[in-house]
Design a protein around this nucleic acid. Structure first.
Lengths: 343, 343
DNA sequence: CTGAAAGCGCTTACAG
DNA sequence: CTGAAAGCGCTTACAG
């Protein structure tokens, strides 16, 4: 099983086969218009026959661009893109990039040393843009990227002060429609288990909840603070029930907390959804694993990935653009925790 | 915020600052021994002062290597590396690669078109090795990679017939120690919910279960087939209890199924762990989200990632090596589902 | 429209 | 030990 045909057909071979110069072959392959039709056809056929693939290193050497985009992935504990969604997000980003001839280079710094190395790397012009899925990243890294003019796009609204481009889901609309759904199911005493205040998302979801209840002429005073893990959801639910016995609907700011809340409800003798309807946020795999399955607000992960990639491409093609923000609408994934099996 | 200092210090500038030729500077930076001490120091200082970073494209153009390793990530539904572990695995791989000056390029083909494009890409020598986390990948892609002599390393035992290098966890040992743990807790009627038979892992875990019970002089006839999702675990547990009332321990081949089994037990009036102890496999986030928290067999994900990267590095440095297999020991993550809160 | 030539930044024989 | 020179594969002004 020795090494075989490291083919490496070069532009020169294609040009020779097509009977033209390398310059002309390059123009054809580069899609330049100033080429005769006959030359174009000859080159294209030769390239196809020889299975020609341009050498990326050579191309980026002359272009002065790396033809690659860095993606910073979050530490394992990250909230925003719960791990379950990470693969889908990365898939979407990679697809969009490769459709445009760029490659996705992944960074998952785990220590200060890693961040240092990463900083060096990015400073070296080794990527044309950076996509940040990690909101906790070192501020100094961000500042230096910004100073160097390297385009960067956040997934989710950045916590940092700097004016930046990002792609986010409309958390306010998500909270509102989750709550509206409970109202539409005839629920009247609807509680909210809020997410951690380490970013703007939790507050926006809470505001959405408030708005929906206000619009429906209902009170929105049943709010407990959670910490995003399951136990905090369970505790919050227990506290809510202790205060207010007649709760008939719950909107939790994450599926994880919703799962904890469902457990607390069941332990305390409430049937879901008969007595209390529960809806979460994220539409993570956990939503399918609870009993009954959990309704949730679905984040359009693939779309986010594609939009992030497009934004990065545009920013790296035309430098010095003003930051742009893209906010996507979430949609509801309805399951038995709110609509019952009979409906 | 216009583009700033795209520094791009070149070797030439370093050489000039150090008062030597580019060739000598290159040798110093490349770690060649045939350089005078004075030249070495001058070059190193100049490089440090100028913040010199080699141009990757130029280097790989001349080296004829891409200095990058491709990683194929699984479709979202993949079993082996449940999404929750993916980020940790990728982090470990990336860290090991970047410590060796290589970059990790991610591929997440979602369609036949993507695979086609990927095949072209890999064929073009754009990566020095490929790490495969996706066991479902197209056979033809694997065959072509193999034919081209591109080093590849699987995560998990490959299902395909081809003789390949891989890094896997010892599933047999994992099943055995999970079961031994239940025995050590005084359990005597221990059931197993087996994983899907689409790979060798499930069978190996089952054999581990059988061996542990055999060694303990216990029967190992309580086996139900699951399908890896939660519902199948729940159903399997219900079937087991219908046949055998006195089950006091359960080893499920995945945390997901274990969660379903716990639910079935609780619905049927069994307390966990008082009446029945339950242990899963994977030590995924689900294990922390169940009530009570689930004991599980932990896969050494980070270690797997590092070993995969090292294997790939070695294979790309020295071609034509015989395939190598690395099998890592799992360890137990013990929680309340088997040891109780009082223990 | 076409091609000869220069050059992207680096490394590596090859003389000295 | 050191440096001039060639070359990795490609693109891009520049003449023609």
């Amino acid at each position: 099983m020795e090494a075989v045909s490291r083919s490496a057909t070069s532009l020169g071979e294609v040009a020779r086969a097509a009977g033209v110069s390398r310059a002309t072959a390059s123009k054809v392959l580069g899609g330049h218009p100033q080429v005769s039709e006959s030359a174009r056809q000859a080159v294209e056929r030769a390239a196809a026959e020889l299975g020609y693939l341009p050498n990326r290193a050579a191309r980026s050497l002359v272009a002065g661009r790396s033809e690659s985009v860095g993606v910073l992935i979050p530490e394992p504990s990250s909230q925003l893109f719960g791990d379950p969604m990470l693969a889908r997000l990365l898939g979407a980003i990679g697809e969009e990039l490769s459709a445009n001839g760029l490659q996705m280079v992944l960074f998952a710094p785990q220590s200060a040393t890693d961040i240092e190395r990463l900083d060096q790397y990015l400073a070296g012009g080794h990527v044309d843009a950076v996509l940040l899925l990690a909101l906790h990243e070192s501020e100094s890294l961000l500042a230096r990227l910004q100073a160097r003019g390297i385009p960067m796009v956040f997934g989710g609204s950045p916590r940092t002060a700097l004016l930046a481009s990002y792609v986010d889901v409309d958390n306010h609309a998500g909270g509102r429609s989750a709550t509206q759904h409970l109202v539409a199911q005839g629920r009247r005493r609807i509680a909210h288990i809020a997410g951690p205040r380490d970013g703007p998302a939790a507050g926006q979801r809470l505001q959405g909840y408030r708005e929906a209840l206000w619009n429906a002429g209902l009170r929105s005073d049943l709010v407990e603070q959670g910490a995003s893990d399951r136990d905090s959801g369970e505790l919050a639910m227990a506290r809510l029930l202790a205060t207010q016995e007649d709760i008939d609907g719950v909107f939790a700011a994450s599926d994880t907390m919703a799962a904890g809340a469902m457990w607390a409800l069941q332990v305390l003798g409430r049937r879901v959804p008969d007595d209390v309807a529960v809806i979460g946020f994220d539409d993570s795999p956990i939503a399918m694993a609870t009993q009954p399955p959990l309704s949730s607000v679905r984040q359009p992960v693939e779309l986010m990935g594609r939009e992030m990639a497009k934004l990065a491409l545009s920013m790296s093609a035309v430098r010095g653009q003003a930051p742009r923000q893209i906010v996507l609408d979430p949609e509801l994934a309805l399951r038995e925790s709110t609509v019952g099996s009979a409906n």
